[in-house]
Amino acid sequence: VGSRGLGAFGSLLLGSTAVHLTAHGRCPVLVVRGRPDPSGAVLLAVDGSPAGEAAVEFAFAEALLRGVDLLTLHVWNTRSERAYEGPGDPLNAVVDIERLRQEEQRLLDEIVAPWQERYPGLVVERRLVRSRVRPSLIEASRDAQLVVVGARGRGGFTG
C-alpha cells in the first residue's frame, strides 16, 4: 500500500489505510513511501516476542539481498510509551535502571546473535534506546531504505 491517503491528516507519516492495514493485517504488509534512490540500511525493530521472529529472519535476508547493513533497534522504557531520564526520574528511587538496561541489552543480543552467526558477512549494528517506541522508530527510519517490524507481540492487545 502507499504511505499517504488523501485524508485531513496530511502531516502523518502514513495514511489511515496504511496504519489500519499494518495494525490489523494477518499477513506481511509492505508500505511504500516513495523515495527515488534508497541507499540506507535495513532497519529491524526488535521486541523479543515470538511473533517478531519472522521479522528478524526476513530483515537479515533482505539486508543481505540488498547488499546493505542491518540496523537492529530495540526501544525500551520503564512505562508504556513514557520514558523518564535523569536524576529526577521517580523510578530511580525504586528501580535499578542500569540493571533494566542490561536486561534489555541482553534481550537484544540474544535475538540478534544467532542470526548474525548465520549471516557472517552482514554488517549488523545493535542499537538500544531508552525512549518511547514510536518517535524512536520514526527517527531511526529516516535514513532506512526498508523498515521491518514484527507483529507487536509483547503487548496485551493485537494491532
Rank of each mutant, 00 (worst) to 15 (best):
D143G: 10
W76N: 06
R130Y: 00
I97W: 07
R130V: 01
E139M: 06
P135S: 01
A51S: 09
C27K: 12
D69Q: 11
W115V: 02
V68N: 02
S136Q: 08
P114F: 08
E125L: 07
V56F: 06
V149I: 15
S49F: 02
R127C: 10
E85V: 12
R118T: 06
V129Q: 14
V133R: 09
V95P: 06
V46E: 05
E104R: 11
A83Y: 09
V56H: 03
V124Y: 06
P135C: 02
P38R: 03
R82L: 15
L64P: 01
L64D: 11
E104N: 09
D37W: 05
L65T: 05
T72I: 14
L128V: 01
A63H: 02
A93W: 12
H74Q: 14
G52H: 04
R126K: 13
R142W: 04
D47N: 05
L108V: 00
P87R: 14
G88I: 05
T78F: 07
V112M: 12
L64M: 02
G121F: 07
E139V: 01
E117H: 09
L65F: 00
E53I: 01
V42I: 04
V94T: 15
V148F: 15
R132V: 02
G40K: 07
G121D: 12
R142P: 03
G86V: 12
G121C: 03
G34V: 09
E81V: 07
V148K: 13
N92L: 14
A151N: 14
E104P: 00
E103M: 11
G86H: 15
G67W: 00
G67I: 00
Y84G: 13
L137M: 11
L30R: 06
R127D: 14
Q116Y: 03
A54K: 04
V95R: 10
E81Y: 15
D69P: 06
D143I: 00
E125V: 05
G121E: 08
V75L: 13
R66E: 06
I111C: 08
L71S: 07
I138E: 13
V32C: 12
R134W: 08
V94R: 14
G34P: 09
H24W: 12
A41H: 10
R134Y: 04
P38T: 00
E104A: 09
L91I: 08
G150W: 04
G86W: 15
R99K: 11
A51E: 14
R101A: 15
L128K: 00
L44F: 01
L137G: 07
A51D: 10
E104C: 06
G52Y: 02
D109L: 10
A55I: 03
V149T: 13
Q102E: 13
P28V: 12
L43A: 08
A83H: 10
D47C: 05
H74C: 15
A54V: 01
E125D: 12
P114H: 04
A55H: 01
A83Q: 08
P28Y: 11
R130D: 01
A83E: 09
N92E: 15
Q116P: 05
A93C: 05
S131Y: 06
L73Y: 08
S136T: 05
R66P: 01
H74T: 13
E85W: 15
I97D: 11
T72C: 15
A144K: 07
D89M: 13
C27A: 15
S49N: 02
R79E: 15
E125A: 11
P135F: 00
F60H: 04
V68Y: 03
E98P: 03
Q116V: 04
H74Y: 14
V112L: 13
C27P: 04
G86E: 14
P114A: 10
